Computed example of a mutant assay.
Amino acid sequence: MKKTTKRLGGTNDGHVLGERTFAAITAVEGISLSPESRKRLSSMKKRKLTNEEQRTEVIRAYIEAKTR
């Protein structure tokens, strides 16, 4: 059974990848998550954040990392 995600409203056209799809792409590309990123993703999943909330949290984490 294929699970799809629909976006509600908004002007930004795009597609949100599912967790398994993202994992498959990163495996092919040879990309691996840092322990900090794994912890953040696990936390977001437990808190059941919306796609927009997850996006905001990831962007905030990378902005903070760049300013260090």
Rank of each mutant, 00 (worst) to 15 (best):
H15Y: 05
P35K: 00
T26K: 06
E52A: 14
E64F: 10
A23W: 12
S32K: 11
T67V: 09
Y62Q: 09
R68L: 12
E52K: 05
K45W: 07
K39M: 07
T26S: 05
V58C: 09
Y62K: 04
Q54L: 01
K66E: 13
R60V: 00
N12W: 15
K3M: 15
R60C: 05
A23R: 07
A27R: 10
T5G: 08
E36R: 02
K2Q: 12
I59W: 14
K3A: 14
T21Y: 12
V28W: 06
T21I: 04
T21F: 05
E64D: 11
R38K: 07
D13E: 15
S43K: 03
A61M: 02
A23V: 02
G30E: 01
T26C: 07
T50R: 00
S37Q: 12
V58W: 13
T56F: 15
E29M: 01
A24F: 07
A65M: 11
K66Q: 13
P35D: 12
L41Q: 06
T5M: 10
E52S: 06
S34K: 00
V58G: 03
L49D: 09
T4P: 03
L41N: 08
H15L: 00
T4E: 13
I31K: 00
A23H: 08
K66G: 08
E57P: 01
G18W: 09
K2Y: 12
D13T: 10
I63Q: 10
E52Q: 13
K3W: 15
F22S: 05
K6R: 04
M44D: 08
G30F: 01
I31L: 04
R47A: 02
E64K: 13
G18Q: 09
T21C: 05
L33P: 04
L17V: 01
I25M: 08
L49S: 00
S37K: 06
G30P: 00
L17Q: 05
R40T: 10
E19R: 07
L33I: 02
V28R: 01
T50A: 04
L17N: 04
A65C: 03
G10Q: 05
K6M: 12
A65D: 12
T5L: 13
R47K: 11
S37C: 07
T67D: 11
S42H: 09
V58D: 10
T5S: 11
K2I: 07
T4L: 08
E64T: 07
R55A: 14
S34G: 08
A23N: 14
K45T: 03
E36M: 03
T21A: 12
K66W: 14
E29P: 00
T5V: 04
A61S: 12
L17E: 05
K39F: 14
